[in-house]
């Protein structure tokens, strides 16, 4: 098998993993905190806490996680066929 595909498969799984984490974060904060009666709500920056954590913080946290995943765990590989493909090491930049 093309050694680049191993890298690609691993990265696809990481993408799925991140999406699952993203869903859990989004669901847990919104329905966990937001399911309480409105009278018991806390507010952060004027927004209900469930909304702040689920949507505002979730957006920022997952933007940063995508950055970390791509910078530290994704490997740069050439897309064109190159002669020394077999010697391609899974080097991290």
């Amino acid at each position: 098998m093309d050694p680049r595909f191993k890298i690609s498969n691993r990265e696809a799984l990481m993408g799925i993993g991140l999406a699952v984490l993203n869903f859990i974060w989004w669901y847990a904060f919104s329905y966990g905190l937001g399911g309480k009666p409105v009278k018991e709500y806390h507010y952060i920056w004027g927004l209900p806490a469930w909304f702040f954590y689920s949507c505002v913080a979730g957006f920022i946290v997952f933007s940063i996680l995508v950055y970390i995943m791509v910078k530290f765990f994704f490997t740069e590989v050439p897309f064109e066929d190159v002669p020394d493909l077999e010697n391609l090491k899974e080097e991290k930049r």
């Binding site: 680049r4 993203n22 989004w26």
Partner: peptide, 20 residues
Amino acid sequence: MAQLVTGYFTLAVLGKKFAI
């Protein structure tokens, strides 16, 4: 906000393999 994943999911899953 479910659409946040579209930013990375498509590219991560189709990813390098599709391009190659």
